[in-house]
C-alpha cells in the first residue's frame, strides 16, 4: 500500500501506543469516563475512535463509553469549491446534551474539518465540553483550532500527504 516515495514516520506499534496514551490522557482530563462520548469523524477517525473506546474500557474498567460517527460533508465551508464525497452516514448515540464529547480524527491539518464538525455537533445537542484527539498534527492551521490530545506532531510541507492506518503513519 506504500505510495511511491512514501516514508514511514510511525509504525503500527507507535500508533497503538499513541492511542493507548491518548486514552490515559482522556481519563485523566475528565476524571474518569463519566459523560465521555467518543465521536469519530468520517471516515478516517472512526476506526481510531473504536480503538480508543477499547482502550478506555481497559484503563477505566467500567465498561464501554458511548461511541458515534459524524459526517461533516454538509457543514464544510468549501462546498462547491472542491469535490465533496460523504463518508458513511452520521450515527450518534442519542443526544449530546451535557456530554464531554471527544472528537477523534486521524490528521489535523487546516482545521476546517474540525470547524465543520463543531457546527455539525451543534445540530445534535449542546455538549458540556468538546475536546479534540488526533493521531497526527501536521500544522498549517487556517483557523484558531488546537487539539487536546495528539499522537505525534509532524512537521510537513503543504503539498505532502499524510496517511494514517492501523499499519502506521506514512508521509508522501
Amino acid at each position: 500500500m506504500a505510495a511511491q516515495g512514501a516514508r514511514q514516520v510511525m509504525s503500527s506499534d507507535d500508533v497503538r501506543r499513541a492511542i493507548t496514551r491518548i486514552g490515559h490522557e482522556i481519563v485523566e482530563r475528565n476524571h474518569g469516563t463519566d459523560g465521555v462520548v467518543l465521536v469519530g469523524l468520517q471516515r478516517g477517525g472512526v476506526w481510531i475512535a473504536q480503538q480508543l473506546q477499547a482502550s478506555l474500557a481497559r484503563i477505566d474498567g467500567v465498561g464501554e463509553v458511548p461511541l458515534g460517527a459524524l459526517d461533516v460533508s454538509f457543514y464544510r465551508d468549501d462546498v462547491g469549491i472542491r469535490p465533496i464525497v460523504p463518508g458513511s452516514v452520521t450515527d450518534l448515540p442519542g443526544t449530546l446534551d451535557g456530554a464531554n464529547v471527544v472528537l477523534v480524527d486521524d490528521v489535523l491539518f487546516t482545521g476546517r474539518t474540525v470547524r465543520a464538525a463543531l457546527d455539525a455537533l451543534g445540530d445534535h445537542g449542546r455538549p458540556r465540553t468538546v475536546q479534540l484527539a488526533v493521531i497526527v498534527d501536521r500544522g498549517h492551521r487556517e483557523l484558531p483550532i488546537r487539539p487536546d490530545y495528539v499522537g505525534k506532531n509532524l512537521p510537513t510541507s503543504r503539498h505532502e500527504t499524510v496517511v494514517v492506518t492501523a499499519a502506521g503513519v506514512e508521509l508522501a
Partner: peptide
Amino acid sequence: SPDPSQAGPRS
C-alpha cells in the same frame, strides 16, 4: 471505498 487511507490529506 471504506479504505481509511482515503481520508489522509484532509484537515
